[in-house]
Design a protein around this nucleic acid. Structure first.
Length: 228
DNA sequence: GACCAGGCACATC
DNA sequence: GATGTGCATGGT
């Protein structure tokens, strides 16, 4: 099993070689392929990662449609040239529009300043270095950063979100108040470092979370029952 | 009308 | 380091 470079030196906990794979197989069997991340370009995916912070994807879609209509998503430079108030108006459906307007501009500013807005240049960088740079951008936290790395740049970095924490703590595989990186490490130590696997796995977790756990917290129909 | 959604930064203790 | 709070829309 390949351990991702940025996890080297961490205290690793290996629970079981198979349970994380078994869960994945069960979810894939029940729900099938999820075709994540929605988005026509890598830049659009990264913008979507910021817009979807604590927000449903259906609202993000509306915001992205508005941005495309105004041609603000064609490049980082273009987004950066869109003034803050205009941007806030366009992304209004995605909520927190003033905060997210600033976050998008900060992120676009980073891409332009650091890589001339060129994602090909960005993608030549090593994952651990990219991760540190992204986390330095205000408004890009661990989940947003890892979503960008996994879905836009195809890096084998497991994305942990509220559904992951809720579902796996409910099934007693993680401590309910474990930190982001502890949970991430647990998945990455127990799974091969494969971006396609991480992509589908996270999408399936979100699918399960939406499908079942909110409407049915007792989870008697949960596909993971009798597996864990 | 309450609750929730594919978080994050910042203040305070 | 842990905990609380502001940010805001749209769907159920």
């Amino acid at each position: 099993m390949t351990i991702h470079p940025y996890l080297r030196g961490s205290i690793l906990q290996k629970i079981s070689n198979s349970i994380f794979i078994d869960i994945y197989k069960r979810l894939y069997k029940v729900y099938g392929r999820q075709h994540w991340w929605p988005g026509d370009t890598r830049f659009e995916m990264m913008v979507g990662a910021i817009l979807t912070q604590n927000t449903s994807w259906s609202n993000v879609e509306k915001a992205i449609r508005n941005l495309k209509k105004e041609n603000a998503l064609s490049s980082a430079e273009k987004l950066l040239r869109t003034n803050g108030r205009t941007l806030a108006r366009l992304i209004r459906p995605s909520g927190y529009y003033n905060v997210k307007s600033k976050r998008l501009r900060d992120f676009a500013g980073f891409l332009v300043a650091r890589y001339g807005g060129d994602l090909n240049m960005m993608s030549r960088r090593e994952t651990g270095e990219l991760r540190e740079e992204l986390l330095d951008v205000k408004g890009v936290g661990p989940e947003t950063c890892d979503s960008m790395l996994l879905y836009a740049l195809n890096r084998p970095v497991f994305v942990v979100d509220a559904y992951t924490r809720r579902i796996f703590s409910r099934h007693k595989l993680i401590d309910g108040n474990a930190g982001y990186h502890d949970i991430q490490r647990l998945f990455m130590v127990n799974l091969p470092a494969d971006h396609r696997l991480y992509n589908e796995y996270h999408a399936l977790i979100v699918r399960l979370g939406k499908e079942l756990c909110r409407k049915n917290p007792s989870c008697e129909r949960c596909p993971l029952n009798r597996l864990i």
